[in-house]
């Protein structure tokens, strides 16, 4: 085994600690971003659905503005976004280097995508059910929490799982410009120093993280669908 590793993965053996650290950095960035972007995305997704013209709290002006803002942010390529919001990152975190700093652009890059996903998930909830809840005298809050979010849960989980996989992709990109993590490892070590075995291991590690998130997502979708 060691012999095999020494022959084909010489650099990987020397970098074991760094690889483990990179994996943790990727998980760290993904986890915190998922948390912040998740909260913001659900908030915005719900706002979009309820303020739409046919929504339970119709506010067409607010909807239009939000809609446009989300479209605009979604249109900015992430690699440019990283550079673009550098000053804000520095303001919030004090630096633009490292996994913690990467969380800021990652959240900004993920929220528009995720809020759209949440919006679509909630729009799948049958309008008739919303109407029935209104007819039963439910308040808008009750309709949001006890109907939209509960009925839409399987779709939201599915959307979250897609978003997290997307997000893992973004962490790799953020890593390349100094965010750390497996992206950084693959580029800074594997690519720039021609250590292809490191790139390969970084890829495998990312794939494993993706598969695990997908598996967890599917499990919960199944558990919440009736």
């Amino acid at each position: 085994m060691t012999e095999f590793m020494q022959t084909y993965f010489p650099n990987v053996l020397n970098l074991q600690d760094e690889i483990i650290e990179s994996i943790w950095e990727t998980i760290y960035m993904t986890g915190w971003t998922a948390l912040f972007a998740g909260i913001l995305g659900i908030l915005l997704g719900v706002t979009l659905v309820v303020t739409d013209t046919n929504g339970i709290l119709a506010k067409p002006r607010l909807y239009d503005n939000l809609d446009r803002a989300i479209n605009t942010f979604r249109s900015i390529p992430f690699i440019i976004m990283l550079a673009l919001i550098g000053p804000i990152t520095r303001l919030l975190v004090g630096t633009t280097i490292g996994p913690t700093a990467a969380i800021v652009p990652l959240v900004v890059g993920t929220v528009p995508f995720y809020s759209r996903q949440v919006q679509n998930a909630l729009l799948e909830v049958d309008q008739g059910i919303i109407e029935a809840a209104e007819a039963m005298g439910s308040t808008p809050w009750e309709i949001i929490f006890r109907v939209y979010l509960k009925e839409g849960l399987p779709s939201i989980i599915r959307a979250s799982s897609v978003t997290i996989i997307n997000l893992i992709g973004l962490t790799a990109m953020a890593g390349a410009i100094g965010g750390g993590g497996l992206g950084n490892l693959a580029i800074a070590r594997g690519y720039n120093r021609f250590q292809d075995d490191v790139t390969l291991v970084a890829t495998l590690a990312i794939l494993i993280i993706v598969f695990i998130s997908q598996f967890i997502g599917n499990y919960f979708v199944k558990k919440t669908s009736h």
């Binding site: 049958d126 008739g128 059910i129 109407e131 029935a132 209104e134 007819a135 039963m136 005298g137 439910s138 308040t139 109907v147 509960k150 009925e151 849960l153 399987p154 919440t224 009736h226």
Partner: peptide
């Protein structure tokens, strides 16, 4: 008060409109 009044007016629909998650 309208919501309160609605609680005293039941309604059923063509497509039942039951919640799938409950």
């Amino acid at each position: 008060e309208l919501r309160q009044a609605r609680k005293k007016i039941g309604m059923i629909f063509q497509h039942f409109n039951l919640m799938r998650s409950r």
